[in-house]
């Protein structure tokens, strides 16, 4: 693979680096710089803070999705979980599911939030039980649960948002603080902390090792004594929990629990994970790549707005991103012969 530094060679090397490891980070920086130069509106502190806020919710969902995809599964229920947990928390806080003005007649948020998070964990783990003990296909299980959760969110909220009044706790976790004149959204801080925890879990714990082992070869992992069912069940629990957490942040920011709160987050989270270098087949990847993927998607999203594209174009963008992400994933694994981007060692014959 030693190429003379011809123009073509350099171009190949560039394509290769974009698709492999360092690529996504470079692209992210290039996108940010590009937007910074081209769009004055993008430079405003408010817009940066909004991007950070949006990135927080997607980031939490994508973190859970990373775990699931690392084991070779997929969780399509996450966007419904975001809506569902938001509606549950909103109803608990409002004390009613009749929408009216902003109400806070129910429980304080320190009770409502743990309940919503707990439900997320349980429902997620329940999906894990169906996938493991009942050997059902995760695609179908989570697609079905997605529909169930969206349905509940719709029924419980009577089709419209439940508006709430934030109490101190909810106000804090969806608020911001100022460092050297820059507003930093607390949700983003929460998300970064979660990412650090996820990184430790994946790279430094036995559980993390088992996640990669299952993604790499589930049979070998089981025959090596790994309790694969327990690990996979936990994975779906984690995904449900983090999606519920995202649901709380979205609900708190909008001061409304509505069934649309999670819209598009499933596709976006899968796209973020794959853009970040995690293989859809499992076993390869990591959490920081996902964070880069999350910001990349948010920048593209914001870019469309600041470049004055119609908001309807968003759907096109999301669709294009997911298809592109899967194309990159396939190319990365050397499965498109004519692209011949031999990015990983390659097999050595015999």
């Amino acid at each position: 693979m030693t190429e003379a530094p011809t123009a073509k060679g350099r171009a190949n090397a560039l394509v290769r680096s974009v698709i492999s490891g360092a690529g996504p980070a470079l692209v992210l920086i290039a996108m940010a710089v590009g937007l910074w130069i081209m769009s004055p509106a993008f430079r405003s502190p408010t817009s940066l803070m909004l991007i950070g806020l949006e990135a927080a919710a997607l980031g939490l969902v994508a973190a859970g999705q990373t775990f699931v995809i690392l084991t070779g599964g997929i969780d399509l229920s996450v966007e419904a979980m975001v809506s569902f947990s938001g509606v549950i928390a909103a109803i608990l806080i409002a004390g009613t599911n009749v929408s009216g003005g902003q109400i806070a007649g129910g429980f304080p948020s320190w009770i409502a939030i743990p309940i919503a998070l707990g439900l997320g964990l349980l429902i997620g783990a329940g999906q894990g039980v169906l996938v493991t003990a009942f050997r059902m296909n995760p695609l179908i299980v989570t697609l079905g649960v997605r529909s169930i959760l969206l349905g509940f969110a719709l029924v419980l909220s009577r089709g419209s948002g439940i508006y709430i009044k934030k109490d101190d706790l909810l106000g804090f976790i969806t608020g911001r603080f100022e460092v050297f004149g820059v507003n930093i959204p607390i949700p983003l801080v929460i998300t970064i902390v979660i990412y650090i925890i996820c990184w430790i879990v994946l790279k430094k714990t036995k559980f993390g090792r088992y996640v990669y082992a299952i993604g790499g070869n589930e049979t070998a992992a089981r025959l090596s004594g790994v309790r694969t069912h327990l690990v996979k069940l936990s994975i779906y629990g984690i995904s449900g929990f983090l999606a519920a957490m995202a649901g709380i942040l979205v609900m708190g920011r909008l001061e409304s629990g509505a069934y649309q709160n999670g819209t598009n987050l499933t596709l976006m989270s899968v796209a973020a994970v794959v853009i970040g270098g995690t293989a859809l087949t499992g076993g390869i990847g990591g959490i920081w790549g996902t964070l880069i993927g999350v910001f990349m998607i948010r920048l593209v999203d914001a870019g469309l707005v600041y470049m004055s594209f119609p908001s309807q174009a968003k759907e096109i963008m999301i669709g294009a991103i997911i298809v592109l992400a899967v194309l990159i994933d396939t190319a990365r694994r050397g499965q498109i012969p004519w692209l011949t981007l031999r990015l990983r060692g390659g097999d050595s014959g015999d």
Partner: peptide
């Protein structure tokens, strides 16, 4: 297909059953 996690290195494969 059953004995090794091919994506794992030598060390990770050897210690997989004894991490606990």
């Amino acid at each position: 297909s059953q004995g090794l996690v091919l994506l794992f290195d030598v060390r990770e494969n050897i210690t997989l059953p004894v991490l606990d």
